[in-house]
Design a protein around this nucleic acid. Sequence first.
DNA 1: ATTCGACTGAACACATTGTCCAGTGAACAG
DNA 2: CTGTTCACTGGACAATGTGTTCAGTCGAAT
Lengths: 156, 156
Amino acid sequence: MAIDHLDGRIIVLLAREPRIGVLEMSRRLGVARGTVQARLDRLQSNGVIRGFGPEVDPAALGYPVTAFATLQIRQGQGADVRAHLATVPEVLELHTTTGTGDMMCRLVARSNADLQRVIDRVVGFDGIVRASTAIVMENPVPLRIIPLVEQAALGD
Amino acid sequence: MAIDHLDGRIIVLLAREPRIGVLEMSRRLGVARGTVQARLDRLQSNGVIRGFGPEVDPAALGYPVTAFATLQIRQGQGADVRAHLATVPEVLELHTTTGTGDMMCRLVARSNADLQRVIDRVVGFDGIVRASTAIVMENPVPLRIIPLVEQAALGD
DNA sequence: ATTCGACTGAACACATTGTCCAGTGAACAG
DNA sequence: CTGTTCACTGGACAATGTGTTCAGTCGAAT
């Protein structure tokens, strides 16, 4: 579960040059190929590295608008709402949370006008009492993991 | 910028079996290797596929707690706050938004207790007036893109 | 002292990659 | 109708990387 410095360097290297091979990595890191291969296998079976799926940019797909919606759910309707939201392609992510709302989801849409359609579809479901939406303007820090990996590689 | 059905199948296939090669993809999809290669190149230079970075699970790294924080910023301090938050490794993502708060960020921490430390570090900065935090309990829909890709591949 | 785990450096057959090419067919402009 | 452009096909080639195995080294723990 804990990762060491070499693991950290492997992940960072992989993050910077995703198409790099095991052999090239071993050269860059100055260790044997078998070592890198074994570390990678371990990181993957550990679940530290979940996969190498392509990172798709919704904006490039024609969905430049992102928003976060906080939902209030009628008691006992949680499971139904989850199932409902899972069927909406524009819902990229859904969490249940403590605090003001009961759920929080990330939405994308083709335009601000289209966002209305998406929200209507999201909240057009019995179990949802109220929704409050925040539209994303800028994204100064895009989803990142490297700083955390570096911290984990040092501290541990 | 618009993607067609073949593009969609390539992305979905890649998302399901990330380590698959171009040759194997061409076999599965029933097209020539050169075609898949050309499509992939185009998708990447389009920016539709941003990369193939490893997906790292913060929980497996020792950060099982996720939270969303909504921040209110003192007028004119936006840039400073952005720079401050970018230095905190536990800040995985930062957006500026419309609505109640001015910014919204995703945090991770080693425990609920550790979350307090992270929040203190986040808000321990002059430009931040107020922060309200929602801790994530469940994640019924993890960050996903396939349904949107399928929709984009059809509709267009 | 011994055992264990991790790492090294090397080897092997095999598959995949990057890069060409000529030929086909569809769409489109003149 | 003709010529051009574009994407796709199917084939080829050398170069590289992969999966796998092996014996040997080293340090730490028992």
